[in-house]
């Protein structure tokens, strides 16, 4: 159920250094997130679509992800034209459609998907572990990276624990409904999961101390930046710079 389906592959992005992808992806997303220009958002969207195509994700899965994220975009597309107000109003039978609202909703839809594609192409093509180590080498606080790597490590275990308890409840004919009993049962399931993970933390901590843990996690692979990594970083930053410059000159 929890997995990183896009992180395995052999395309350009899968082989690139995670640090390059983190920096390039963040800068490009930042430009897209802050722009108010339709043209810049559109060009950015087309560019990140190209990136996504290069990363060759499995089509079914990627469409599903894109659909999930776009539920909120759809909500905005329907609600903003009706509620936004503004000067440009078109009367359509009983409804007043705000053109400003329509414009904003479309801009948001393009930006949201542009940034999503950028994320899927650049960051989702790395495993969480390599992202974590990349963040550490980019000077993020060591404790934060440790939290990230360790929660990631324990995530699956805790989810399994929860599922086991849930299965046990189902075997005892528990069927969820709108009742206090249901809420209490879920609370106890979750409370028990908490208790188990609390005690597991204690054991893991003791085991780590025994093995001489000093707060550092040392990755087995220490990737070196290659020429292609520098090239990728330079082109991502260049595109971001051009888009940012264009965005500053054309605010609408």
């Amino acid at each position: 159920m929890i997995s990183e389906p896009f992180s395995s592959g052999s395309t350009l992005f899968h082989c690139s250094d995670a640090r390059v992808k983190v920096i390039g992806g963040t800068v490009l997303s930042l430009v897209l997130a802050t722009t108010t220009s339709f043209a810049v958002a559109m060009i950015g969207f087309l560019f990140t679509s190209l990136l996504l195509l290069i990363s060759r994700p499995s089509p079914g899965l990627i469409l599903k992800r894109i659909a999930t994220v776009n539920i909120f975009t759809l909500f905005l597309l329907f609600s903003l034209p009706l509620t936004y107000g503004g000067a440009d109003i078109v009367q359509l039978q009983y409804f007043q459609i705000s053109l400003d609202g329509m414009r904003i909703a479309c801009l948001i839809a393009i930006k949201t998907n542009g940034i999503l594609f950028c994320f899927l192409a650049l960051l989702a093509t790395s495993s969480t572990v390599s992202l974590g180590h990349a963040l550490e080498r980019l000077r993020l606080p060591r404790k934060l990276v440790f939290l990230l790597l360790f929660s990631y490590r324990q995530l699956f275990v805790i989810h399994q624990e929860y599922l086991r308890l849930h299965r046990a409840a189902q075997l005892r004919a528990f069927t969820p409904s709108n009742s206090l009993h249901t809420y209490r049962t879920y609370s106890h399931l979750f409370g028990m999961t908490l208790v188990k993970s609390w005690n597991r933390a204690e054991r893991v901590h003791q085991a780590m101390i025994l093995r001489g843990f000093d707060g550092r996690l040392i990755p087995l692979k220490q990737p070196q930046l290659r020429k292609s990594d520098y090239l990728l970083l330079a082109s991502l930053l260049l595109i971001s710079l051009i888009l940012a410059g264009f965005s500053l000159n054309n605010p609408v």
Binding site: K143, F146, V157, Y162, Y186, F190, V204, H205
Partner: peptide
């Protein structure tokens, strides 16, 4: 820190319930 990481993971699992 170990406790916090485990609870962070548990918080993540809560969002799946």
């Amino acid at each position: 820190i170990m406790t916090v990481s485990l609870l962070s993971a548990t918080f993540f699992v809560a969002s799946l319930i």
